[in-house]
């Protein structure tokens, strides 16, 4: 005690006030930061999309939007399916071990039915949408090109199952969304198939 001032008490009150005030500020910050997360409306926007695939030709691709992202549906022909097996050693993750897909699409075709590829056409590097180059030996892609995808942003290459090549910037295969067939002609993107 000096001059009637209790310094211990003053120190305690200063610290206590700062701590309580600090907690108050942090508690107040939480709702503001949380308000920046996707709103209930944004979370609901992921409704499934239905597609009619009966009119697709071999080698044809259609683009649709699910959760605002580009989804490509590709109908692969016999020979295209065959070529998927021949380029294993040029791929970084041929068995999709570190890539994102539903369990039923973790196979060489990365799809439910080998004929139909259903894929989120977003490059796993930095999110550009790669362009579709289905023809083997496409002059722009070189003579040993078996058909696939090319991302112009930083040059990543993928095969016709969205599997990434070695030595390009993209680290993993492109994502496969949940999808299922209602019947032979109708595909639903955004709902899981009940597989046995």
């Amino acid at each position: 005690m000096s001059n009637g001032v209790d310094n211990n008490r003053r120190h305690f009150l200063t610290v206590a006030t700062s701590v309580v005030g600090g907690i108050g500020v942090a508690a107040m910050a939480a709702p503001f930061l949380a308000s920046l997360r996707p709103s209930a409306r944004a979370r609901l926007a992921g409704a499934p999309v239905e597609v009619d695939v009966s009119k697709m030709d071999e080698g044809e691709r259609i683009t649709l939007s699910w959760r605002g992202r580009p989804i490509h549906v590709v109908r692969r022909g016999e020979d295209a399916i065959e070529r998927l097996g021949e380029i294993r050693d040029r791929l970084r993750d041929p068995d999709s071990d570190s890539s994102d897909q539903p369990e039923y699409a973790k196979n060489e075709y990365r799809s439910l039915k080998p004929e139909y590829l259903v894929m989120v056409a977003v490059c796993t590097h930095l999110g550009c949408s790669p362009s579709f180059h289905p023809d083997p030996a496409d002059p722009a892609m070189g003579s040993d090109w078996p058909g696939g995808y090319f991302c112009a942003c930083h040059g990543s290459r993928f095969d016709l199952a969205g599997r990434v090549y070695r030595g390009v910037p993209a680290p993993t295969n492109m994502d496969i969304p949940p999808h299922r067939f209602v019947d032979d002609n109708t595909l639903i993107v955004g709902e899981d198939a009940e597989v046995a």
Binding site: L36, R37, P38, S39, A42, G46, R67, G68, R69, H125, L126, G127, C128, C153
Partner: peptide
Amino acid sequence: QVIISLFSVLPGIGEPLAIWIRGDYLIS
């Protein structure tokens, strides 16, 4: 899209952080 994806590269927190910045699952 490319710049925000830079954040999603960070291990672990990356993807939630990118979603938090966008406020959505994609730029909208």
